[in-house]
């Protein structure tokens, strides 16, 4: 191990630590969950309404989305890895749950936020 290795590791950790802090500090609770499949917005659900929805993935498959007490999570899916189910509950603006096999993304958004804002932030 050389001195440069340690410097490199420290720099990476500082950058990601700062990133983590900034991203968390700027989050606030959202009021809607936006569902996109293969990049297209298919639905926006109100987080204040407790409800269960069945989403259809790209080229088939399903994900069961549950909204409960202002939080959203995937209860069930027929994708191979089930990362979306393991991801847990989300409620802060910008938080996402991704199901890569079905190309389904659930993202928490605010009322005033529209599709244009997202395009710019990309």
């Amino acid at each position: 191990m050389k001195k440069n290795d340690i410097i490199l590791i420290l720099i990476i950790l500082v950058i990601s630590g700062a990133g983590l802090f900034v991203l968390h500090a700027t989050k606030s609770s959202g009021s809607f969950v936006k569902i996109t499949v293969d990049g297209n917005v298919v639905a926006t659900y109100d987080l204040s309404v407790n409800q269960t929805y069945e989403l259809e993935g790209y080229e088939g498959g399903y994900n069961i989305l549950v909204i409960e007490n202002g939080e959203a999570y995937f209860r069930e899916a027929d994708c191979p890895d089930l990362v979306c189910v393991k991801s847990g509950k989300i409620h802060k603006v910008g938080e996402t749950i991704v199901c890569l096999p079905h190309r389904v993304v659930a993202e928490i958004v605010n009322e005033g936020e529209d599709a244009e804002v997202d395009t710019v932030s990309q």
Binding site: G19, G39, Q122
Partner: peptide, 22 residues
Amino acid sequence: AMTVLETGALIYYLPILMISGT
């Protein structure tokens, strides 16, 4: 993943993935 899924919000995973990568 950001390009394929067209979601900028995936940037939230980046710090955690950088730490795990380290």
